[in-house]
Amino acid sequence: MSDTNAIGLHESSASQLAEKLNALLANYQIFYMNVRGYHWNVKGPQFFELHTKFEEFYTDLLTKVDEVAERILTLGHQPAHAYSDYVAMAVIAEDKDVHDGEACVRGVLKGYQTLIELQREILALASDADDEGTAAQAGDYIREQEKTVWMLNAYLG
């Protein structure tokens, strides 16, 4: 009996990656809702600019939620799908009652920084497991989000 899964990865590696990806999925879901809340509730002189930007961010985050869940399935495992599990697994905390534009931007910045850190762990694990699919996904996300972090920092001055 083979110890590899349907895509040729060692099952122990695939299981470890799926666990890390589920933690990433939980963080994406919490972050998505935080950014959605910023979009709905932001107030102040930058309202129009930030309202539009937050919609851009949460739309992209929702796409990534789906892609991460599908990667977990590709590895032969089940993505977490209960919000209570997301809250329990996530490093990113729910951000409630935030209205100030700068505070919202700082929340977005902190969320992306956390995602980058988690994705770097996944990238290293995927590289060690010869999992090019997961490594490429994590690498693409990191590249995009590093640029976003730079831009958010520039916005904040």
Rank of each mutant, 00 (worst) to 15 (best):
M1L: 06
D3I: 10
I7T: 11
L9D: 06
L9T: 07
H10Q: 13
A14E: 06
S15C: 12
S15D: 15
S15K: 15
S15Y: 11
Q16I: 07
Q16V: 12
Q16F: 09
Q16R: 07
E19Q: 13
K20I: 03
K20Y: 09
K20Q: 15
L21H: 05
L21K: 02
N22V: 07
A23F: 08
A23W: 04
L24D: 00
L25T: 04
N27Y: 00
Q29K: 08
F31Y: 06
M33N: 04
N34R: 01
N34Y: 00
V35A: 03
R36K: 14
G37W: 05
Y38T: 09
H39L: 08
N41R: 06
V42D: 01
P45M: 14
P45N: 13
Q46I: 14
F47L: 08
F48I: 14
E49I: 14
L50M: 12
T52V: 09
T52L: 11
K53V: 04
K53S: 07
F54W: 01
E55L: 05
E56D: 08
E56S: 03
F57W: 01
F57T: 03
Y58T: 02
Y58R: 01
Y58E: 00
D60H: 08
D60V: 11
L61Y: 02
L62P: 00
T63C: 05
K64R: 14
K64E: 14
V65P: 00
V65H: 07
A69C: 05
E70W: 03
R71M: 07
I72K: 00
I72N: 03
I72D: 01
I72E: 01
T74P: 08
T74K: 10
T74M: 09
T74V: 11
T74W: 05
L75K: 02
G76P: 05
G76T: 10
G76K: 04
H81L: 09
H81W: 08
A82Y: 15
A82T: 09
S84K: 10
D85W: 01
D85G: 09
V87R: 02
A88Q: 08
M89P: 02
V91P: 04
I92K: 00
I92P: 00
A93H: 12
A93K: 13
E94Y: 02
E94T: 08
D95M: 00
K96T: 04
K96F: 07
H99K: 10
D100V: 12
G101K: 06
E102S: 09
E102N: 12
E102M: 14
A103E: 15
C104M: 11
G107V: 07
V108N: 02
L109D: 01
L109S: 07
K110H: 15
K110Q: 15
Y112I: 11
E117K: 14
L118R: 13
L118F: 12
L118A: 15
L118N: 13
R120P: 14
R120A: 15
L123D: 11
A124N: 09
A124Q: 11
L125H: 13
S127D: 14
D128L: 09
D130Q: 06
D131M: 06
G133C: 08
G133F: 03
A136R: 09
A136K: 10
Q137F: 15
A138G: 10
Y141F: 14
E146C: 09
K147T: 14
K147D: 15
V149W: 00
V149F: 03
L152Q: 02
L152P: 01
N153D: 14
G157F: 12
G157T: 14
